[in-house]
C-alpha cells in the first residue's frame, strides 16, 4: 500500500485536466503511428512528441522508473538478439533501423499509455470507451490492462524494497558479478510470480464485480477543453512531421 501511495503521489498534474477520450486517442494515435513508421528518424520525431506528453502528464520519478524497466527489458532483448546472431550469422541485424526501431516503438507506446493508466479513473475510462462505441471485447481487456499497470509498478517498488532489506550491505559487488543467475532469482522470479498472482486476483475481482464486455456504464458526452484540443493538435502535428520524415528518409535510402 505504501508503495502504491507513492505511485499515487507521483501521478501527474493532469489527472482531471485531460479527458479520458483524449488520453485514449493519444494512445491509439501513438500505437498506430509507431506501427506504420519504420525509419528510426521518423520514430525519433514521434518519440520526442510523446515524451513531451508523458512528461507533462506523469511525475518524473514514475517516468524514470518506467524507462529504467524498459531499458532493462531492451538490454535483455538486445543481448539475446546478439547471441542469436552470434550462433546463427544469418540472423544478425542487417541495419541500425532493424535493431533500434522496435525499442523506439516500445518507448512511444509507453509514453502514451502511462498517462492513461496512471491518471484516468476507471469509471471515466469505461464511460469514454462506451462513448467511443468500441466493442465490448476490446473495452474489457483494455480496462483490465490499464488497471494492471499501477499494480505492476506497485509490485516493482515493493520488490525493490524487499531486496534492499535482505541484501543491503551483505553481498559485495563481486558476489553479484560472480553469481549472475542470482539476479534472475532475486529480481525477476518473485516479480513474475507476483504478476501472475496479481493478474489472477484482478481477473477474480472483475468477475466478482460483474464486469462484462456488454456492461453499460452510462455517462454523458464530455466537452473537450482547450488543453484537450491543444494536445490533440500537437499529436496531429507529430503524426504529420514523423510521416514526412519517414517519406524523406525512406526515399533517400531507396534512391
Amino acid at each position: 500500500m505504501r508503495a502504491l501511495s507513492r505511485i499515487e503521489r507521483h501521478r501527474g498534474p493532469g489527472r482531471s485536466a485531460l479527458k479520458s477520450e483524449t488520453r485514449l486517442l493519444m494512445m491509439v494515435v501513438a500505437s498506430i503511428s509507431s506501427l506504420v513508421l519504420s525509419e528510426p528518424q521518423a520514430l525519433a520525431v514521434l518519440l520526442s512528441f510523446s515524451a513531451l506528453y508523458a512528461v507533462a502528464e506523469t511525475k518524473p520519478k514514475t517516468l524514470l522508473l518506467a524507462y529504467l524497466i524498459m531499458a532493462i527489458m531492451c538490454s535483455i532483448a538486445l543481448f539475446f538478439v546478439w547471441l542469436l546472431g552470434f550462433i546463427f550469422p544469418l540472423m544478425r541485424s542487417s541495419s541500425l533501423s532493424m535493431a533500434i526501431s522496435p525499442f523506439l516503438r516500445l518507448a512511444v507506446t509507453m509514453n502514451a499509455i502511462l498517462p492513461l493508466a496512471l491518471n484516468s479513473r476507471l469509471t471515466d475510462l469505461a464511460m469514454a470507451l462506451g462513448r467511443l462505441r468500441l466493442p465490448g471485447l476490446i473495452r474489457l481487456p483494455l480496462m483490465v490492462t490499464i488497471r494492471f499497470i499501477p499494480t505492476i509498478l506497485n509490485d516493482l517498488l515493493q520488490l525493490r524494497e524487499a531486496v534492499g532489506i535482505r541484501f543491503r550491505g551483505r553481498k559485495g559487488f563481486v558476489f553479484w558479478l560472480r553469481h549472475p543467475l542470482m539476479w534472475w532469482r532475486i529480481f525477476f522470479q518473485p516479480l513474475i510470480v507476483r504478476l501472475i498472482r496479481s493478474a489472477d486476483e484482478l481477473a477474480m475481482a472483475a468477475e466478482l464485480k460483474g464486469l462484462e464486455p456488454n456492461t453499460d456504464f452510462g455517462g454523458k458526452a464530455q466537452h473537450f477543453s482547450g488543453y484537450d484540443r491543444l494536445t490533440m493538435s500537437l499529436s496531429a502535428l507529430a503524426m504529420v512531421l514523423s510521416g514526412l520524415v519517414q517519406i524523406v528518409v525512406g526515399s533517400h535510402l531507396y534512391a
Binding site: D155, L159, E161, A162, P190
Partner: peptide, 13 residues
C-alpha cells in the same frame, strides 16, 4: 532487520 508483511516479494530461492 525488518520483516515486511508481504511474503511474496521476500522469497527468492
Amino acid at each position: 532487520q525488518v520483516v515486511l508483511q508481504n511474503a511474496d516479494h521476500q522469497l527468492y530461492m
